[in-house]
Computed example of a mutant assay.
Amino acid sequence: MTPADHPEPTPTATDAQTVDITVAAGELIRRLRSMHGPLMFHQSGGCCDGSAPMCYPAGEFRTGGSDVLLASLAVEGVDERIPFWMSTSQYELWRHTRLIVDVVEGRGSGFSLEAPEGVRFLIRSRLI
């Protein structure tokens, strides 16, 4: 799987959405949802994989006053929307971009649900 296999995002709620997903990310999200139930994303901006979006069972990662809810992703085949959170400090750096959740081969953080699948979520961005 290469970025060329799925370069265009699949729209989520509206064209004005700040977070989109690629076709490959949508497929992985549906698979993870079937295994783990409702999901959530959080992107912290910390070191190592901290700048990659982490996928957790909904409510597993505690958000608070230092986090921003950027989007509630509508993923085809998933009944509920999936919240996408980002730390406020990371948001300040990325606030002028449209984020695109994609999937690439390789292991990311062991805390994100996709880690055992041999792939990891990755953020691509475009200026808005």
Rank of each mutant, 00 (worst) to 15 (best):
R62D: 14
F121R: 06
L99W: 02
V78S: 10
D15P: 12
G110H: 02
I128V: 01
C47Q: 07
I100H: 12
H6I: 02
L93M: 04
L99N: 06
S112K: 02
S72F: 04
G50C: 05
H96F: 01
V78N: 06
R120E: 07
V101M: 09
E80P: 00
Q90L: 08
H6E: 00
V101Q: 00
D49W: 07
L127G: 03
S44P: 00
W94C: 01
M54S: 11
A16S: 05
L69E: 13
G37S: 07
Y56C: 05
V101F: 07
V75E: 05
G45S: 03
H36C: 07
H96W: 04
S125D: 00
P116K: 08
D67M: 10
D20T: 00
L39E: 01
E92D: 09
D5K: 03
M1Y: 12
A25T: 10
R95G: 01
F41T: 02
H96T: 12
I128N: 00
R126C: 01
D15G: 08
S51F: 08
V19E: 00
I21F: 06
M1V: 14
F61N: 05
V103R: 11
P53E: 00
R31W: 00
T63D: 14
V119E: 06
S51M: 09
G50S: 01
T18E: 04
W85F: 12
H42N: 05
T97P: 01
P7Y: 06
A4C: 12
V119R: 15
E114L: 03
G106C: 03
D15E: 03
A52L: 09
E114I: 04
V119P: 01
D5S: 10
A24Y: 06
S109K: 06
G65Y: 15
H6F: 03
T14C: 05
P9W: 06
V75P: 08
G37Y: 12
M86A: 15
A115N: 15
A16R: 07
R98F: 00
E92V: 15
Q17F: 02
R98L: 02
R30N: 00
M54D: 09
A24T: 01
I128E: 08
V101A: 14
S125Q: 04
F111C: 09
S87P: 07
E105V: 14
M35C: 09
S72A: 13
V119I: 11
Y91Q: 02
S112H: 06
H6Q: 05
